[in-house]
């Protein structure tokens, strides 16, 4: 049976793989398999980002997200954020390891200087070193917490992003453990986002790959069609062109073109990761 297709309703959210696939960590569940040595996608330069920002503004894009790899490995990251905040709100997904007090103060100044929101998501995969470090790397729990503390001290309140690799996270009790941890850091208004795992990249090795039945099929569309999927309103820019979404950047068939204008058409929901987005109601947006 053939796969359904999703139409782009409106290009609201534009992602930038600003750190490429280069990361200072090599998390065992990373669906993009980012690592210090993964150069599948290189970092984006300010000039490239500006070119897409110009096109995005003409198309009426509403918000911008930055991910990697680790975005703050990109030496132009703060300038890129300043350029972005001239045209719209921005969110950075980071592992928190490069958030020293000086950088956090500069980021707060950027946030204060803009009409638009600047938000941060810091990834954490456990409520202590025992649960987090086997996933994200030895010693990372304390270093991530230091980054979160620095953001908080600068007056920035990040969303903590946790995947369901951390057992029990999805339930209310699991969420409360994270809220308790964040409150213990002095964060009075903790923010939390839970994401399921995508069984691709490094996660396919760690937790197992998709099974053959985990696919979307023609005729299975819910009443509202496929508009609930983030690919109905987003695209992802890498150094090699424009991809359908932030999940499938390692899939050559998910590249849709070189410019945003190339990518405004339908996309076939053939990949098993599309099944996860549908079944779990995933959005990579905050």
């Amino acid at each position: 049976m053939s796969s359904p297709e999703v139409a782009l309703q409106s290009l609201d959210t534009l992602w930038f793989q600003v750190g490429g696939t280069v990361c200072n960590l090599a998390c065992t569940h990373c669906f993009v398999s980012c690592s210090p040595t993964n150069h599948t996608h290189e970092m984006l330069a300010l000039a490239e980002v500006r070119r897409y920002l110009d096109e995005a503004a003409r198309l009426g894009v509403r918000e911008y997200y930055f991910t990697g790899g680790e975005p703050f490995l990109n030496p132009e990251m703060e300038t890129i954020l300043a350029a972005t905040l001239e045209v719209g709100p921005a969110t950075v997904l980071t592992n928190g390891l490069l958030l020293d007090p000086g950088r956090c103060a500069r980021l707060k100044a950027l946030a204060d200087a803009s009409d638009y929101s600047l938000d941060f998501r810091v990834s954490l995969d456990g409520w202590d070193a025992t649960s987090n470090d086997p996933i994200r790397g030895e010693g990372t729990f304390e270093r991530i917490l230091a980054g979160i503390r620095n953001l908080h001290a600068a007056g920035l309140n990040p969303v903590i992003t946790v995947t369901e690799v951390c057992e029990g996270t999805a339930g209310d009790a699991g969420k409360e453990r994270f809220f308790t941890l964040l409150r213990s850091l002095g964060i009075e208004r903790p923010r939390l986002k839970i994401l399921p795992v995508f069984r691709i990249g490094a996660e396919a090795e760690r937790g197992g790959a998709y099974e053959s039945w985990q696919r979307l099929r023609e005729g299975e569309a819910p009443d509202g069609g496929w508009d609930h999927l983030q690919c109905s309103s987003c695209r992802m820019v890498t150094d090699q062109g424009v991809w359908v979404c932030p999940i499938l950047v390692n899939e050559p068939e998910a590249k849709m073109g070189e410019t945003l204008a190339d990518t405004l058409g339908d996309f076939p929901l053939e990949h098993p990761a599309c099944w996860t987005c549908h079944v779990y109601g995933v959005s990579c947006r905050t």
Partner: peptide, 20 residues
């Protein structure tokens, strides 16, 4: 576009509103 879409000041940028 949607009866329950949130138009906040800090997330409704000028280019988006012009197109809307």
């Amino acid at each position: 576009r949607r009866i329950n879409e949130f138009l906040f000041h800090s997330t409704s940028p000028v280019p988006f509103l012009e197109v809307l």
